[in-house]
């Protein structure tokens, strides 16, 4: 199965003086089970697009096929609960949405809402508490006594606990320390490896290079590129023109090239080190 957008447009406040185009005639197809990155500037339409994945916003025109559902402008809100269990969105700073008296209850809230029994909900909550890297003894604490990074994990555990087929996360690692950020990214990579689709909204091109299989690039409500990371980062002039940054390794390789040491464009730091080593092979070293 795949996620299909056919000529999807979204207009904010139609017919009013504040009318604005949110999405402009988007058509694309995403393969399920992949790790997909959604990039673009603030205001490019990323968040608007994200909210279409589970019909929080419905297209003004066009058609979306996702997780066995078909969404059109006429789709009624009734009967969308199943879609929202299969496709979940995690917005920026999800820790702001914690509200329960204990961590465990907060994580159980989502599963219970989708019909898990008390027993099942507790079981999955404890499982995901551990999976997101929290110690079992925080279960009975108030989520508000935790650090910001821990609260973020609780909030994400609350969504992963009912295991949506497709999870779309907006800058989930923003503001975490480097160790926390790596752990978080590995968690999503593992979630994908276990057979789910992960859609990551991010500004971090190193994360795109390190994790994504497929990249959507948005600008002014339009999809301006849809390709694998290597192709997206290949055309430096195009990236520059659209004010998009590049993975750090790719930038470094460019500096090397300008200084006369030309290597194949790397995406990750490991590729960069391999390329350099391959070129220097045979050089005697101290």
């Amino acid at each position: 199965m795949s996620i299909k957008f056919k000529n999807v447009s979204y207009i904010y406040n139609p017919g009013s003086p504040l009318e604005a185009v949110g999405l402009d005639d988007l058509s694309f197809e995403l393969e399920e089970g992949k790790f997909i990155a959604l990039v673009g500037h603030t205001g490019s339409g990323k968040s608007t697009l994200m909210q279409h994945f589970n019909a929080l916003l419905k297209p003004s025109s066009g058609e979306i096929e996702i997780a066995g559902y078909k969404i059109t402008p006429e789709t009624s809100n009734k009967g969308l609960k199943g879609l929202r269990q299969k496709v979940s969105l995690v917005f920026q700073f999800p820790e702001a949405q914690l509200f329960e008296s204990t961590v465990l209850r907060d994580i159980e809230y989502g599963p219970k809402n989708f019909g898990f029994s008390d027993e099942e909900a507790e079981k999955v909550a404890r499982k995901w508490l551990e999976k997101v890297g929290l110690k079992a003894d925080v279960a009975e604490k108030s989520p508000f006594d935790l650090s910001g990074g821990q609260m973020r994990r609780v909030a994400i555990a609350g969504v992963m606990a009912y295991e949506p087929d497709i999870i779309c996360l907006d800058e989930p690692a923003a503001g975490l320390d480097p160790q926390g950020r790596i752990e978080m990214m590995e968690l999503f990579k593992q979630y994908q490896a276990e057979g789910h689709t992960v859609i990551l909204v991010t500004h971090n091109m190193d994360d795109v290079a390190d994790y994504a299989d497929d990249v959507l690039v948005m600008e002014h409500g339009q999809l301006i590129k849809h390709d694998v990371p290597r192709e997206v980062f290949k055309d430096r002039d195009w990236l520059f023109k659209h004010h998009l940054s590049e993975p750090h390794s790719s930038l470094f390789a460019d500096k090397l090239g300008k200084a006369g040491f030309v290597i194949k464009q790397p995406l990750t730091i490991n590729e960069l080190a391999d390329e350099i080593a391959a070129r220097l092979k045979g050089v005697p070293h101290e």
Binding site: D177, P178, Q179, G180, H248, F252, I269, N270, L272, A273, D274, I276, A277, L280, V283, H285, E286
Partner: peptide, 21 residues
């Protein structure tokens, strides 16, 4: 202490692992 290493130091470390000092 769980902090990132700047890019240059990380690359130097990887290269050193490949015998490039």
């Amino acid at each position: 202490i769980g902090l990132d290493i700047p890019f240059v130091y990380r690359l130097k470390q990887l290269l050193s692992g490949k015998g490039i000092q």
